[in-house]
C-alpha cells in the first residue's frame, strides 16, 4: 500500500465529462477534496480564486487549452508554486514533453491507471510539501523574492547588469540612543522598527538585502524586474515615514525614545547577483548607483529632509508626488554634481 498522505485540495480540468467523473471520483476515493472545471478558462479562474495543492490539467480543451493555462500559471508569481500534472492521450506525448519542459510537474496518460494516478499525485504532493518547507526556511533568511528566484533558477554566484532602484535607510543618532538605554530595550526597538520598515518595503515589491546595525539596504526592480521600480521605491519610502509616525506615537505613549530616520534613493544601472561562497551567499547590488544611494541617505542629515532621491529616480515618477528641488550636490568620490530632490508626499 502506498504511503498515506494528508488529504489535499485538487482541481481536475478536463472538457470530457467521463474523464472528469473518473478522475475526481478516483481522487476522492483516495481521500482528497476535488473541484472540477470543464475548460481551460474556467480552470484558470478557479486556480486564481481558490486555493489548490495540485492541478490535473487536460491539454486539448476548448476556450483555453492546457498550454495556455499552464503558461498563465507559470507566469504568475502567486500561482507558480502549484504543481500541475498534465493529463493527455497517448498520442499527445509531444505536447506533454513540451509541457514538462515548460514547467509542468508530471504527466499521466488517459485512460488513467488508478495505481499510477495515486503514485504521481502523492509524489507531487510530497514534493510540494518539501518545497513549501524549503520556501519557508528560505524566507526566514532571505526575502520572498530572492527565495522564489533561488527556487526557480537554482543557486549560482555571479551577477548581471540590471536597471533598478536602491534605497538606504538609517536611524539618526542611533549611537546616542543605544548608549542611553538598556541593551534589551535597544534590540526591542530595532526589531519593532525593522518589522515596520520591512513590511513597508515588501508592500511595494522591494527586497531588503542588507541589514547592518540600524541601517538597511533595499532594492526595487531586482531580482524580479519591475517596470516602475523608481515609483515603488519612493512609495515605500513614504510608507516607511508614515509607519515611523505611528511607531513614534507608540514610543511616546510608553515613555520611550522617538526615533528619526533618513532615506536615500538612487536609480540606474548596477550589477546584481549572488556574492559570497557556495556555503554562504547573499543577493546584493553593487555599482555607482548603490554608492550614490548611500551618499544621498547620508545627505539627509545636512538637508534636514527625511527622504531624498536622485534625478534618475525623479524621472521615473509620475506627477503625483510633492517634490522640492535641493539643487546640485557634489558628493565625495563623485566627479559630477548630482541633482537632488526631497519628497514630502
Amino acid at each position: 500500500m502506498a504511503v498515506s498522505i494528508e488529504p489535499a485540495r485538487l482541481l481536475v480540468v478536463d472538457d470530457n465529462k467521463v474523464n472528469r467523473m473518473v478522475l475526481s471520483r478516483s481522487l476522492e476515493q483516495q481521500g482528497h477534496f476535488v473541484e472540477t472545471a470543464e475548460n481551460g478558462r474556467e480552470g484558470l479562474e478557479k486556480i486564481r480564486t481558490q486555493t489548490f495543492d495540485l492541478v490535473l490539467l487536460d491539454i486539448e480543451m476548448p476556450e483555453m487549452d492546457g498550454f495556455q493555462v499552464l503558461e498563465a500559471c507559470l507566469n504568475d508569481f502567486g500561482l507558480r508554486q502549484i504543481p500541475i500534472i498534465m493529463t493527455s492521450a497517448m498520442e499527445e506525448l509531444d505536447a506533454v514533453v513540451k509541457c514538462v519542459e515548460l514547467g509542468a510537474e508530471d504527466y499521466l496518460t488517459k485512460p488513467v491507471n488508478p495505481i499510477l494516478l495515486r503514485a504521481r499525485v502523492n509524489a507531487s504532493l510530497e514534493k510540494k510539501r518539501l518545497r513549501d518547507e524549503q520556501r519557508k526556511l528560505f524566507r526566514t533568511f532571505a526575502t520572498k523574492e530572492v527565495a522564489e528566484e533561488l527556487l526557480r533558477t537554482g543557486f549560482s554566484l555571479g551577477g548581471k547588469h540590471v536597471n533598478a532602484t536602491v534605497m538606504f535607510a538609517d536611524i539618526r543618532s542611533f549611537t546616542t540612543i543605544a548608549e542611553s538605554q538598556d541593551p534589551s530595550d535597544t534590540i526591542e526597538l530595532l526589531n519593532g522598527y525593522f518589522g515596520l520598515m520591512f513590511d513597508a518595503i515588501n508592500n511595494h515589491g522591494g527586497t531588503v538585502n542588507q541589514m547592518v546595525g540600524d541601517g538597511l539596504m533595499a532594492v526595487f526592480g531586482a531580482p524580479m524586474f519591475q517596470e516602475d521600480h523608481c515609483e515603488r521605491a519612493v512609495r515605500a519610502g513614504l510608507e516607511m515615514l508614515e509607519q515611523l509616525k505611528v511607531f513614534n506615537e507608540q514610543q511616546s505613549a510608553q515613555n520611550r525614545m522617538r526615533i528619526h530616520i533618513g532615506i536615500g534613493i538612487a536609480s540606474g544601472e548596477m550589477i546584481a547577483g549572488y556574492t559570497g561562497t557556495q556555503s554562504r551567499a547573499t543577493y546584493t547590488c553593487i555599482g555607482d548607483t548603490v554608492n550614490l544611494a548611500a551618499r544621498i541617505e547620508n545627505h539627509t542629515k545636512t538637508a534636514l529632509r527625511p527622504l531624498l532621491i536622485d534625478m534618475h529616480t525623479r524621472e521615473g515618477l509620475s506627477d503625483a508626488y510633492q517634490l522640492e528641488s535641493l539643487g546640485e550636490v557634489l558628493f565625495k568620490g563623485k566627479q559630477q554634481p548630482i541633482h537632488i530632490f526631497a519628497v514630502s508626499k
Binding site: 467521463v18 467523473m21 473518473v22 471520483r25 476515493q29 491507471n113 488508478p114 494516478l117
Partner: peptide, 22 residues
C-alpha cells in the same frame, strides 16, 4: 474491474450512464 475498484462499485452505473448518454 480496475475502473470499478478505483471509483467505487456504487459509482459505476453513473459512469456508464454518462458515457452512454454522450
Amino acid at each position: 474491474q480496475e475502473l470499478k475498484d478505483a471509483t467505487g462499485a456504487d459509482y459505476i452505473a453513473e459512469l456508464i450512464d454518462a458515457f452512454l448518454d454522450d
